[in-house]
Simulated scan of single mutants.
Amino acid sequence: MSERTVFQSMSRKHVVSLGATATVWEAACLMTGANCGSVLIVEPPGKLLGIVTERDLMTRVLAKALPPDRTLVSEVMTRNPYCVTPETLVSDAVLIMIERGFRHLPIVGPAAKILGVFSVRDALPREIGAAVSMAEFNEQVNDARG
């Protein structure tokens, strides 16, 4: 069986996004309504500025007691997030996530068109297993180089 690409595996094909002047409250409401764990922060006509995730809301807003109705997403977003192309294999995307410590990857196609977000939840167990094996191998190689 051939491996799926991130675009093939995405559970939702529409982009959940807000402008940089939206509040954290608006982001949380949008993510709740869309049942997703992240929102892309864009500037018209579709330029990706950043991403806000559930983890960002916990660590950058709640843990710092910032008022969600007055805190802008641009203040807490991850700027210039790491992105993948729609042709990226799921196991490669999961490996990137493991090694870089995040769970959401924006998918950007030709002409910087934002196509969606790949979430680790979109991966199948075998794809995650392949990525974990590769991450362990990479770690062993790096340790051997010492």
Score class of each variant (00 low, 15 high):
55 R>F: 08
24 V>C: 13
7 F>L: 13
101 G>N: 03
46 G>W: 09
95 L>K: 05
24 V>N: 02
80 N>W: 05
100 R>W: 02
61 V>D: 08
111 A>F: 04
3 E>F: 06
144 A>W: 09
89 L>S: 11
115 L>W: 04
13 K>E: 13
91 S>Q: 06
17 S>L: 07
22 A>L: 07
98 I>V: 14
62 L>H: 07
17 S>V: 11
97 M>W: 05
14 H>N: 14
119 S>V: 02
88 T>P: 04
30 L>Q: 11
37 G>M: 08
75 E>H: 08
52 V>E: 03
62 L>M: 13
142 N>S: 15
8 Q>T: 06
131 A>R: 05
66 L>E: 10
40 L>F: 12
66 L>R: 15
123 A>S: 08
87 E>Y: 09
83 C>I: 15
58 M>N: 03
98 I>W: 00
19 G>C: 09
39 V>Y: 00
67 P>T: 07
140 Q>E: 15
98 I>F: 06
107 I>K: 01
79 R>C: 14
143 D>I: 11
115 L>R: 01
100 R>P: 00
98 I>D: 05
90 V>G: 05
86 P>K: 13
54 E>A: 03
126 R>Y: 01
133 S>L: 13
19 G>E: 09
64 K>M: 09
136 E>W: 01
29 C>W: 02
114 I>E: 03
71 T>F: 01
79 R>P: 13
139 E>N: 09
6 V>A: 09
140 Q>D: 13
136 E>K: 01
9 S>C: 14
138 N>L: 14
59 T>C: 09
54 E>F: 08
33 G>I: 10
114 I>L: 03
119 S>W: 00
109 G>F: 01
61 V>H: 02
91 S>V: 03
125 P>V: 09
26 E>C: 12
140 Q>A: 15
4 R>M: 11
18 L>R: 07
101 G>M: 01
77 M>I: 11
102 F>R: 04
82 Y>N: 05
15 V>P: 07
59 T>K: 07
40 L>T: 14
40 L>E: 12
89 L>F: 13
48 L>K: 07
143 D>P: 02
124 L>D: 07
25 W>M: 11
85 T>I: 10
27 A>P: 00
88 T>H: 08
20 A>G: 06
122 D>I: 01
25 W>N: 12
16 V>A: 09
